[in-house]
Simulated scan of single mutants.
Amino acid sequence: MIIWLNGPFGAGKTTTVRELLKASPGLVELDTELLGYALRPALASRHPVGDFQEWPAWRRLVVTALTELARADVGDVVVPQTVVVEEYWDEITGTLVDRGIQVAAVTLHVDLAEHLRRIETDMLSRPEDDAGRVPAARWRRERRRDYDSALPWLRAKTYVLDTTAISPEDVAEAVLAAVPRGLQHQPQV
Rank of each mutant, 00 (worst) to 15 (best):
A105Y: 04
L161Q: 02
S45P: 03
E169P: 12
R59L: 03
Y37I: 08
D90K: 13
A156R: 14
L5T: 02
Y88M: 03
D162T: 09
S24P: 04
E87D: 14
A177T: 11
D122A: 09
R71T: 05
A172V: 06
N6L: 07
A70D: 09
I92P: 01
Y147I: 06
G100A: 10
L30Y: 02
D90G: 10
E173A: 15
P80D: 02
A178L: 05
A38R: 09
L5G: 01
R138N: 10
V49I: 09
R140A: 13
F52N: 00
A172I: 05
V78A: 05
G182N: 04
Q186G: 13
G100I: 08
F9E: 05
G75K: 06
A174G: 10
E87F: 12
L108E: 01
A11I: 07
F9Y: 15
P127Q: 13
V79G: 02
L176D: 02
G7T: 01
V63K: 04
R138E: 10
I119P: 00
Y88Q: 07
D129M: 12
Q188H: 13
A174N: 12
A104D: 01
V110P: 00
E19K: 08
P48G: 15
R155H: 10
D170A: 14
F9T: 12
W89K: 07
I119A: 02
L69C: 06
P180N: 15
H109T: 04
R118S: 14
H109C: 07
M1V: 06
L61I: 07
A11L: 05
H185V: 08
D51W: 04
T15V: 11
D148N: 15
A136R: 13
G36Q: 00
L35P: 00
W153M: 07
L30K: 04
R133T: 06
L5S: 02
A23I: 08
W139T: 15
Y147R: 06
V85D: 09
S167Q: 11
T95N: 11
H185C: 08
A104F: 01
D73S: 11
R140E: 05
G7M: 00
Q81K: 15
D130I: 14
T121H: 11
T32R: 01
Q188M: 11
W139P: 09
E33C: 03
R138Y: 12
V110T: 12
R138K: 12
M123H: 09
M1D: 04
R143M: 12
S125P: 03
N6W: 00
R126L: 12
E19P: 04
